[in-house]
Design a protein around this nucleic acid. Sequence first.
DNA 1: CGCTTAGTTGAAGCGAATCAAAACTAGTGG
DNA 2: CCACTAGTTTTGATTCGCTTCAACTAAGCG
Lengths: 244, 244
Amino acid sequence: MDTVTEIGPGKEPALCAACAVRNSSLCGALSAEELHGLNIISRRKTFERGQFHVLEGDDALEFANVVRGVGKLVRGAPDGRAQIVGLLFPSDFIGSYASSGDGAQEPFSIEAASEMELCLFPRAQFQKLAQEFPGLESRLLARTLTELQVARDWMVLLGRKTASEKVATFLLHVGQRVQNAGCHPTEGFDLPLSRSDIADHTGLTVETVSRQIGHLRKAGVLEMEGTRHVRWMDHDALSDAAGF
Amino acid sequence: MDTVTEIGPGKEPALCAACAVRNSSLCGALSAEELHGLNIISRRKTFERGQFHVLEGDDALEFANVVRGVGKLVRGAPDGRAQIVGLLFPSDFIGSYASSGDGAQEPFSIEAASEMELCLFPRAQFQKLAQEFPGLESRLLARTLTELQVARDWMVLLGRKTASEKVATFLLHVGQRVQNAGCHPTEGFDLPLSRSDIADHTGLTVETVSRQIGHLRKAGVLEMEGTRHVRWMDHDALSDAAGF
DNA sequence: CGCTTAGTTGAAGCGAATCAAAACTAGTGG
DNA sequence: CCACTAGTTTTGATTCGCTTCAACTAAGCG
């Protein structure tokens, strides 16, 4: 549960042109020249489950793309309460990019939910690139708008949905995201989050999450193998259970 | 409770250079030339309390700036449950601007919480302007990032705060926003939202909101005149009650 | 002044949290 | 391979905070 400075294969030179998330990430729209600019300033870093990329309140020094794995954006209270305000999947961009202003603070911690690989860009250098290539900023705006939409959708869940609706919605969303990443539509997937993470994302407790998953299984909406693998989901029934 | 097509003073020509929110809004960073471009395409429209600017699912045809009053971003469920996912104060920008893609749908309804005046820009024309003047897009990005931060902060409230913390936090936030707009720091203000709106924003019921405000008053944290006017707040005590 | 809507207050019920413990998993070392 | 430990998930019993339902009060408006 500590910040990682150097792990696994450690720093690796980035090879943007051959990158796994090249097309779906921010980098997708860049020309060869622009891509080269990114290539020079980027480096790879791997995180094991539970390790932090940044901590709430740290100085923001880097931007990043998720290359592999799943991450959590966590806001924590001193008394132990925690809320996951967003999930990070491959090709997602990390960091509150604003063209002006440096000395920014990280608004939440970023923790690896599974083994996770990031492609890091030093803040100042990335900002300079973004000013040279306005296409980068456009794409950042589009991504930020999507994130805002996702966040507001989740606000509806947190404010107005019941426990069972929350869990059903969560499974539906994660199922979609995971399957998009893997590109195989209907054969099950591994949940990237623990029960405790699901609780912190849905505003529930571990016990309630566990019970609600149990209900969905008994109702035949869902079939699981172990605690993490979802074998299949009745998408329509789950969609009903998710409730609007 | 219907969409308004033409009301009050109705369409007015915009006079950007003399606009009340000229400096704090998106328009603040524009040159005389750019401002002129906006001036030509914009028009003013006034909404009475309860009237809608757009409805969830409508085609998105316009962007706007809030000039006066307060608005609500509302997502509603068929069964009557509603969640306010954001508030609009003077100088706030309205509309999910993405440089590409037209045919967008409004993701939520926008309703006037008090009398409200907007400065409207036709979608296509505004997009063209934004492409000509990249400074506009930069500022849009900065604003969108702020909104995202606000939304995520609110997720923490919805997911993990108690009823009394929610209400205290709400009062603190609205107090700040209203006083920023008016620029008088410590002499009380009018709540722009009804109890029912507060409930829909905090994920509570009207009754609970009412009771919690009552508690805060009895505790001497807050003094009110009627149901809408806050005479003064013990900022420190309220901040404690808001809880992190 | 009566009518309608908004806000407050009280009593009862319920959904999710809390508390407690058992079942299961995964990792470690003998 | 199994015993041991630590962590996660499930299950059960109980409690509590908020909702629901209902009545009442205050405020706005013809």
